[in-house]
Structure formats: structure tokens, C-alpha cells
Design a protein around this nucleic acid. Sequence first.
RNA 1: CGCGGGGUGGAGCAGUGGUAGCUCGCAAGGCUCAUAACCUUGAGGCCGGUGGUUCGAGUCCACCCCCCGCAACCA
Length: 519
Amino acid sequence: MQKSFFVTTSIAYVNSVPHIGFAMELVQADVLARYHRLKGEKVFYETGTDEHGIKIFRTAADLSMTPQEMVDKNAQRFRDLTKALSISNDFFVRTTNPDHKRGAQKIWQKMAENGEDGKKDIYKGTYEGLYCVGCEAYVLEKDLVDGNCSIHKKPPELLKEDNYFFRLSKYSAQIKELIETDKLKVVPEARKNEILNIIGEGLPDVSFSRPNSMLPWGVPVPGDESQVMYVWCDALSNYITGIGYNGDNEEQNEMFKTFWPAQVHLIGKDILRFHAGVWIGMLLSAGLAIPENIYVHGFITSEGQKMSKSLGNVVDPFEFTEKYGIDPVRYYLLKEIPTTDDGDFSKERFLGVYGSDLANSLGNLVYRVFSMNEKYFEGKIVKKALSAPATLTAPLPELIARYHASINDFDLKSALELVVKLMNAGNEHVEISKPWALAKTDMDKLAEVMYQLLELIRIIAVLLSPFIPTTAEKILAQYGESGKVSDAVGGLDTALIWGQLPEGLQLTKGEPLFPRLEE
RNA sequence: CGCGGGGUGGAGCAGUGGUAGCUCGCAAGGCUCAUAACCUUGAGGCCGGUGGUUCGAGUCCACCCCCCGCAACCA
């Protein structure tokens, strides 16, 4: 049976417009999705937007819009971002979709049914908190200044409200064990330890709903129209509602059976506790399988400083993709930002990487080799070489094995570094074998060298295709049909075997892949 | 005594017990197929500090110093 692979990003909160951090998350997940598709697996890649909650409600009011108008407008920007980055997502879930709402209500019901009478997983309780009328929200004691709300300079009121709670504490020990034993694998290790630390003292029950009167913008609690779901309950359930967990559609149920549980939830480090804690608890309560992996990436600083609107240094992903192209941005995010650690986005480094890695190492290699082949053999492949250049740091199959291992360990940066090694080896091979000299003395040897270079470039392009797909396609297109990587089972593995290019193949030389930047 | 992450050549990083590596930058040389691209060589580090474990520590232990997150927009 064909293996399935379900990968998700977190869903973006549409209170604002997208920035480079979410762009990175999309791109990282896209690499995984594309990689597994090339491996011949049945892939479903889901991303989307989180559109409920008090902040949205309030921001919309400030802008004199209805919440729906505002989320429609902002969600479109996130959809645009997937296009701007060549993201290959199969679905874009929105938590305001009727399908999603039905699914969220369904999992709520399952959870509510679980547990013995009097000790159900969802129970009614009283939430007590300090409420600031000015903020129209609960504030925490530690945020008060001299007992006053720091913004409105007035003391908050002690309010009580009825709402529902989720008995997360019941699942605390079980969740801990799942993470300890890697049945739910949290990557990297440091984040696994962190979450185990948090759970160590036991997870508390969580408030799971709000009175409609306080928060009118959310999914209604089934059977109690006076309450709406806590945003995290609503938001987390997107991972199953997006693949058809909502009950009344056969085709969608089939999809759910195929793709659940997810292989990978890709998230930022700030929301680990919700995913490794609350979400797992919800699934256990509802009797659903739990995801296999949670991959956690870090944050991006801008020019060495934390991105913030007040500093005005928020990096707009659209600005860079429009100006420099999609793949340079993808490449930077994947190679220059550590996959699971914090990294920095600086324009200077971006331009440096564009020049050295993309224009020089890769672009120039492709261009010079195709130019030579055109010059010496009219663009034809005249003789097969049986093996890769001996200048590689390790045998090609070993390098490729390490590439696969890196991707499967969610170390995308290392995988790309291996490919860069191959680019360098290609350029080195040109220097050592001196085709321009061979052209005068030994055409037979020259033909072999050209084959080695062309085959190496083809393999480089295949290896790059999950990362910078547009560029990879451009390169592979120069080989015509022989450059295609079939989506059939084992497509990627076959394409990575040395010697796929046949003798007599006519090649087409392309334009330089990454033109030198003028500034 | 809060929690977590980190301090390695000019910059950015890798390196979890056995002669300190990578990329960029810099210097010199080479080449001419190529997008002034490519290749080679070199300079540059007492691996934050102190003490300890060990035949041997950047790598383990203890203590100390410094930087960054843990409030908000936000991944």
C-alpha cells in the first residue's frame, strides 16, 4: 500500500499580515511535502489561518469592520504568501469554514462524552479572574502596576464566569510517557526536554470556553449556545477538520482514514505546550490517534534584533520574493537559518548568499558546463562516464544517504550543505580536468568529463528540487525528458542513481539562473 | 538561587573525550570554459573565567562572569 504522509504547519493568526517567520515555517514544511512526494508517497500538506478569538474581534472593531470582513481580507494575504513562496500545500484551512466548525464541535462532543458520570472530560466550572473593563479582557496579577491595569490605570474587577473546563490533568501522565518514549517525537531534543519539564509538575485542567457575552466571535459550544470555544480548542482541531473530520461526508471521512495521524506537525517554539500538551490530551480524550512527530523551529531576528512593529524592522516576505525571486528567499530561510534554532535575517547576508551560493557556486557551474558542452559537442552527450568525479569528499551514494538522513532528522540546513559540497566538487572537477585543454588534445576524454559534469549537475538539481523547486526545474528542463523526476514510487531514488543520462541526448543551454545583482 | 538558550579565528556557525573544522570576508598565486565567475595556498582561535575528573577536555563535573528570550504585535 502506498505510504501516506501528512504534514501541517501551525495556522497563522490573522490579526495581522504575514511576516518572514511564518514564511520560514511554510517553506520548511514544503520541503518535507515535496521530498515525500518525490519518494512516491501520498502526501497531504495543510496550512491555513486561525480566525477566531478576542483579539481578532477587537482589532476588527478598531478598524470599523466586521470580524468576518477583516479575517477574509487578512486570510487572503496568507493565501497570497503560499503562492509567493511556491508552497505546494494541498489545502488551506480556515477556522471560519463551516466544515471546520462542524469538526471542532464534533471533537468537543467526543471529548464531552468521555469519562464517568460526574467526572466527564469536559465539565462546567467557574473561572475567576481580574477583569479590566478598559481592556475588555482578563489581566494577570503580575502585569498590574500598583494594582492597576498598566494601560488604563484603573484597578481591575474580580469577575467570575461560568465556563467549561477540559480535564487535561487526567491525561498528564500518559502524555508524558508518550513524549518520553518518542511515540510522540518532539524534535529537537532540547524542546523535548523543555516540554517534559513543563509536564513534570502535571498539566492543569484548562478553561475551554467563554461566555458568548464576553466573546461573541468563535465556534459555539455544542448544546450550549451561551458559550463559545476557547480559541486553542478551536484552532488545534484544524489538524483533523482539514482532512475531513466532520462527519457527514463519505469522501472526507475516507481522507481522514488515509491521512490521520499526522506524520509531522511543524510549529514555532512558543506554541509547543499547546501542541505537545493540550492537543495530545484532546486527541486522547476523543479516542483519536496521536501524531508521530512535532518539529519545532526557532524564531527569526531582523538584522540582529527582535522583530517588532514598534522598531519597524519586521521583514516582509513579499518584498524580498518580488525583488529577488522566490528561490533565493527559500534558500536563505532553509540554509542560513538553523532549522530548529533561532536565526537572523539580514539583507547583507541575504545578498551575500545570493551571490556566493546561488549565482557563483550553482548558477555559474550550470552555465559554464552547458556552455562548454555546446561549444565542444554542439550540446550533445556523446559518451557516458561510468562513475562520478573522484574529487568528491565521499562516494556519491554515501553523500546521498546522508542527505536523506538529514531530511528525516529535520535538519534541512545540513541537507543543503551537502548539496553545496557537490556544487563545489563540480567546480573543482572543471579546474582539475581542464576541458578547454582536453578540447585540443583528447576529445574522447573530454566527452567523459562532460558527462561526469552534466550528470553531477542533474543529480544536484534533483537533490535541490524539494528546496528550490523552480530553479531545479529550470535546470532539469535543460535535459529535456531525461531530466524529469517521475512521481512514481521510488522516483527520487531512481533519479539519484548515477548514469541516467543516455548517450546521444541533445541538451538545451539555459539563461544564467541567478543574474548578478546590480546594487 | 526563577526557567530556558547561548558564549569557538574579523562575521556567521559545526564540532559531546584523543592532533581545532566549515561558509563568508581578507592576502598571495593560478586558470580562462563561465555571471570580474572558478581553483589552490596562506594569515587569523590560549574554544567566556576559575577549579576539578581523566593518561588525555572545546567536549564531562562544580562554581563564577557575560549576552538573548520568557509583557505585547507575533512563528
